[in-house]
């Protein structure tokens, strides 16, 4: 069965979400993944979005493009203010936070602000939005992104969203008492962070990917087991469901 990289990302990310938990999701792949999880193994997963909706059930074929539009609030149990949603995150209610990113470093820090100097950037990116807040407050932070060498860099131009911050207890030293980056899901591999060094390492490979390819697409040194695990391919059911969520392929590309 063939599938695209974005379908693979949504399916792989959905499998990381356990039933009964609360996930803070953005639009695009995160919302696809969270919605798919609810349709498969996690029917009691609660989806929260930063525009101000708790417990939304997005309508297949009518996914929101922004998290603060009506589509994002469909069948929600509460529509709090944006500030209140983030305060619930800071209070510790949200199990998972999903993040993407233009640039990611070995410690899972993310840049979505600027390429080049902050005062006079070479590329002005869209900015944090709620990404920095999700990274600071959610209990398990999952990064979902395409695996490209230009994204996975040793040093960021700017840290928008803190991951492990730096080696050892970098996150704790920065004052972030709670949460941590637990996983990085790409179309080539699943990665986590070595507790000793704080750096990203390969846990498992996506179907068809090999370690040499992963390292070639990573701009920093990436540790891995000699024989990393292999992630199961998306099932026909998962693919059918994720395609039905986004039939116009607004987010699936």
């Amino acid at each position: 069965m063939s599938y695209t990289a974005s379908e693979l990302l949504a399916v792989s990310a959905s499998r990381l979400l356990a039933d009964g938990k609360i996930v803070f999701a953005g639009v695009g792949t995160p919302l696809l993944a969270a919605s798919l999880a609810r349709l498969t193994h996690a029917p009691h997963l609660t989806i929260v979005v930063e525009g101000g909706a708790i417990g939304l059930e997005a309508e297949p074929g009518r996914l929101p493009i922004s998290t603060n539009e009506m589509r994002a609030g469909r069948r929600a149990v509460m529509l709090p203010s944006i500030t209140q949603i983030f305060l619930y995150a800071q209070r510790g209610y949200f199990d998972y936070g999903f993040l993407g990113g233009a640039q990611i470093d070995p410690y899972g820090n993310i840049n979505t602000s600027v390429i080049g100097p902050a005062e006079r950037p070479r590329v002005r990116l869209p900015g944090s939005g709620g990404a920095c807040d999700i990274a600071c407050h959610c209990r398990e932070i999952v990064i979902v992104t395409r695996h490209e060498r230009r994204r996975f860099v040793e040093r960021l131009d700017f840290v928008t969203s803190p991951g492990q911050v730096g080696a050892g207890d970098g996150r704790r030293r920065a004052g972030l008492l709670f949460g941590r980056v637990t996983a990085v899901v790409t179309d080539l591999a699943l990665m986590d962070f070595d507790p000793a060094t704080g750096r990203m390492r390969v846990v498992a490979l996506q179907p068809g990917a090999d370690l040499a390819q992963v390292r070639e697409q990573t701009g920093f040194e990436l540790a891995a087991a000699a024989e990393p695990d292999r992630l199961p391919a998306p099932s026909e059911q998962e693919l059918a469901l994720v395609r039905a969520l986004d039939p116009a392929r607004t987010f699936l590309g």
């Binding site: 983030f86 800071q90 820090n109 602000s113 902050a118 944090s128 920095c132 807040d133 990274a135 600071c136 407050h137 700017f158 840290v159 928008t160 969203s161 803190p162 911050v165 970098g170 996150r171 920065a174 004052g175 972030l176 008492l177 709670f178």
Partner: peptide
């Protein structure tokens, strides 16, 4: 006060 932006360069800019 908040815990947001700790560990982020937004704290600096």
């Amino acid at each position: 006060p908040t815990l947001s932006m700790l560990g982020s360069d937004l704290l600096r800019t």
